[in-house]
Nucleic acid binder design. Sequence first.
RNA 1: GGAGAGUUGGCAGAGUGGUCGAAUGCGGUAGUCUUGAAAACUAUUGAUCUUCACGGGUCCGGGGGUUCGAAUCCCUCACUCUCCGCCA
Length: 422
Amino acid sequence: MLQVVNIRSKREDIIAALKKRNIDAEALIDEVIALDEKRRSIQFRLDESKSLINTLSAETGSLFKAGETELANQKKQEVSAIKEESVPLEVELKEVSATLEKLLYSIPNAPHTSVPKGKSSEDNETLRTWGEATDAPHHTPHWDLTSKYKLIDFETGVKITGAGFPIYTGKGAKLQRALIQFFIDEADAAGYTEVIPPLLINEDSGFGTGQLPDKDGQMYYANEDNLFLIPTAEVPITNMYRDMIVDEAELPIKNVGYTPCFRREAGSYGKDVRGLNRLHQFDKVEIVQLDTPERSYTTLEAMVSHVEGLLQKLELPYRVLRLCGGDMGFTSALTYDLDVYSAGQSRWLEVSSVSNFETYQANRMKLRIKRKDGKKEAAHTLNGSALALPRIVAALLENNFDGNKINIPSVLVPYTKFETIS
RNA sequence: GGAGAGUUGGCAGAGUGGUCGAAUGCGGUAGUCUUGAAAACUAUUGAUCUUCACGGGUCCGGGGGUUCGAAUCCCUCACUCUCCGCCA
């Protein structure tokens, strides 16, 4: 969530930034400011009466010890009276704080100055493209290839679970593992520490990264234990640092993790869900960084470059987009999407989303930096897919199909241990 | 799943109704000593809200209660450990 201090001191900037998300937040922001002022004034009065109660209670104690029972009883009654008076204040403080918090949870992150205005994915800004985004001569969609070469069994997946839960078989399974290993090796070389996190998370973690309170409908829920299946490794990995104060010297913290991801994808349909385009369970390698506010945007660019490097090594044509305000995620301040060209479907497929959340997540999860001078402030959190597997597999198959066989990009051959699929 | 024990500052660990935000040890930081280091000694060392500041409030797993006053008593939830059961 946004920090109240910032809302107070940068009211205009925040309202202007939120306009890019097509939100007129003026009334909301002013309500936050008013509630915060109210909260502070109540707390001040409450603190005063508590201070008085503490003093009088201590005096009562000494009087009892000294045997001055009568005086002590008098003080006792005095304290009771003050306490009674402060009860409504206490109730009010709780109410005001709860309302304020709820309001803060409902405000999305303020977009970075570079974020373009816009309503939908149409308005995203294409920054650059790499490679030739041209259709393959045979123009075969991957679902035909996966069935022709027996790489993925969608039907049996339906039988044992349901749509969107594919079974990778034979070389399809090996390709999958090869990609994961390749991605992790690359991240390793770039200085990321690998983690294998839990695939189920509790409510606090869901709140920390911003999936809760409103996006619970997108996560699978393990009712009996009140746990959620992770929609992305971002959640467990970032939450490793929840409620922590990290020394400035330890930053940046760089983690990479491979996990399956689970998404209910309620409301999706049509060509979007065909084949590997959108699944309920898919594999992803995620990179996560924690850094200082002054460095985080440089870090963001470095993360994008890392992802671009992966795509270049895989020889997949791609483009880099800067998301417009209307298409950005709730918690992000700036997001770059990377799309690969799918030569069998003639469309771009999003394979990575790299974001800087600034202090939005850190503030929620109480993740702070301890500066050299001892001062504490919220850290910046960032993450990105590096990469999401299914659409990479889709593009890889489609783009490298020559009519007779599928040629594996040379960088992957040491991992797959086969050069072609035929 | 059953039975029992526990949860205190970065860590270990005292503290069972008042002066306890909390002894002590370790660790951290600064200094003395030393050519330097170690050792020793001295000092310092939690978080959070509020205030220009002085100061004040809150926090001893979470929530609630009893009391003039709670780390300490009661209720409740969560977690950890030990034993038993089950099991990759």
